[in-house]
Nucleic acid binder design. Structure first.
Lengths: 339, 339
DNA sequence: CTGAAAGCGCTAACAC
DNA sequence: GTGTTAGCGCTTTCAG
């Protein structure tokens, strides 16, 4: 058993211990570690060797206290019922954790339910983070507004009309426009669009992209085939009934959960895909991929969204040049459901 | 705009400021806040009033440094590909965050990929947490072994043969036994069992419960209808083929992802549920619930698992009586898929 | 009941 | 190059 594991039982070794042991001052040891300030190569080496041998790990908390930093970033996860079902946030978080660790930061998470900012405020006032990542964007976003007021650095995964907010997102407008265009060109005469909550910027953007495809291609669109706020199964079932009565050729779902419910309803009514009706979605969940037939969808590297957000935020915290908007790639994956 | 929001821009008010302002010593102010030590009711009140009015928030980091605590708990999330698809961990995390905040702790998360403990070790050696929650349990669990060595308090969501580990779980053996018994009693003559990775204790336990039902009811079981390590679609497809050739009456899936793939394959082959084949699962995902027909399943309050884990861990950290094992309730929900 | 002083582990002027 | 000192914001003996 290496003694690296004993560190917890025994009191942790400190910079003072090293200084004493090596007959140096704490300052010198600190300098050897941080690389800041003048120090001779030889003592630096001596200290670094001692550190390696004794498996010294600096106390980040103390360092933080001295520098008025925490080396933590906060991540706000939505706690609304539906959203737990979506792997999006978990994937984001994976990316954030990975990149944060690379840059020597830790990740503190908390949740926000609807517009209840209690836990967010708590995190801030506890002074345990140097900055915040918002993992979604709502219309008139309350968390974002709060963070702006408070003045703490933050970035948003998602898009906002407020250009002063640092944003990381994939281009949902362009993506949905592209997907819709492909569908139109591949011979779908009529399309229906089903989206979730209109308060989510992402749903608005996908809708906008959907419209844009029609405008760009100079094709007329039936506005009654736009279904927003499809937040429960009943609404979706009803929408599908309408859609099928109208003999629409293809349904575009703005997220996986909706698509999953759409597929259930279509199956229930014994409609076959893609013969009777085609279906396309936006997904990152394996579930739709293993569906029979596989579902055409716009796919995003969600983990990369997290990685990039963490990187941007830590850049901000470190006082580097801030990059207002970062686009993350998407990819349209054509499958049997639209063929 | 209340000035509570200005706290970030302006330097935060400290205990020293209050002391000076009120003509007291820092010690007295500290006592007024913590309630520790003797202090007159009047000065205590005076301090508390000042605090409220000026919206003072103690610096938890500094407090922690002085007490060699962090008031953070760490949560280890698995980063393996498949697991991102399962809402289980996200729901756990919601519960953990909620309860931690109640008890004035914050939640630091990190990930562990397979047996690569790098990020876990990093979290520990950074000394940013007072304890750890493991969110799953593997056979010969590497993270658990490491944490035991290091000696940091930790709890496990899941079960382990190692009784020295504080565990929070629902009784998968009893649950699966009960579910299986119900299926047997309701007239299923033959059952097949499909589970994921055998290294996951939960899969072993469900398997054990499955067997126990047969033993308890003195019914013979066909061991060739046990399919473990069904980690990809191909294996599942093959298993389903075998199962259908043998005219099995019901398939029990040990988790949602497997069940979702099973359903896809059954649909593909045009088998109907429950007429040709019945299906039962273990779920917490809305997706299976909205399936047509709805799937019979054993359901667990996963968020409660998280809440309880956080509670137990913080009890340990606070030196309270430790409770070695906490069972969380499960419920068997009978739906059309087994009728 | 209250305060002075030391200390948690580290950094950052400022001297030498 | 290196050391001294003060300080980050709080707790905790120990006196009084």
């Amino acid at each position: 058993m290496e003694d690296s594991n004993k560190q917890y039982a025994a009191r942790n070794i400190t910079i003072g211990d090293i200084a004493e042991e090596l007959g140096l001052s704490k300052t010198t040891v600190s300098r050897a570690i941080s690389g800041k300030g003048r120090i001779s190569a030889s003592t630096k080496l001596k200290v670094q060797e001692y550190i390696r041998e004794h498996n010294y790990k600096p106390n980040v908390i103390a360092k933080g206290l001295a520098q008025s930093k925490t080396f933590n970033i906060g991540v706000i996860l939505p706690a609304d019922a539906n959203l737990t079902e979506i792997p999006f946030f978990q994937s984001c978080l994976m990316g954030i954790c990975e990149e944060a660790a690379n840059l020597d930061y830790d990740v503190v998470v908390t949740t926000v339910k609807e517009d209840d900012l209690t836990l967010l405020k708590r995190l801030i006032s506890n002074q345990k983070v140097d900055g915040i990542i918002l993992t979604r964007s709502l219309v008139n976003d309350a968390p974002a507004r709060y963070l702006k007021e408070v003045g703490i650095p933050f970035v948003m995964i998602g898009s906002s009309e407020d250009e002063s907010i640092v944003q990381i997102d994939s281009n949902h407008i362009a993506g949905c426009c592209e997907l819709t265009s492909i569908l139109l060109m591949s011979g779908c005469k009529s399309l229906a669009f089903l989206a979730g909550n209109q308060n989510h910027i992402v749903n608005r953007n996908r809708y906008e992209g959907f419209l844009k495809a029609f405008t760009d291609m100079k094709v007329g669109m039936d506005e009654s085939m736009i279904f927003m706020d499809m937040n429960n199964k009943m609404l979706i079932d009803r929408a599908i009934n309408t859609i099928m009565e109208r003999h629409i050729s293809c349904i575009v779902c703005s997220d996986d959960l909706i698509c999953s419910r759409v597929l259930a309803k279509l199956d229930e009514e014994n409609y076959t895909i893609p013969n009777t009706i085609k279906v396309a979605s936006f997904y990152n969940s394996a579930h739709l991929e293993s569906h029979n037939p596989p579902i055409t969808a716009l796919s995003i590297d969600v983990k990369d969204l997290g990685v990039t957000a963490a990187k941007r935020l830590i850049e901000m915290i470190s006082g580097e040049q801030i990059i207002p908007k970062t686009w993350v790639n998407y990819e349209i994956v054509l499958k049997k459901s639209t063929k």
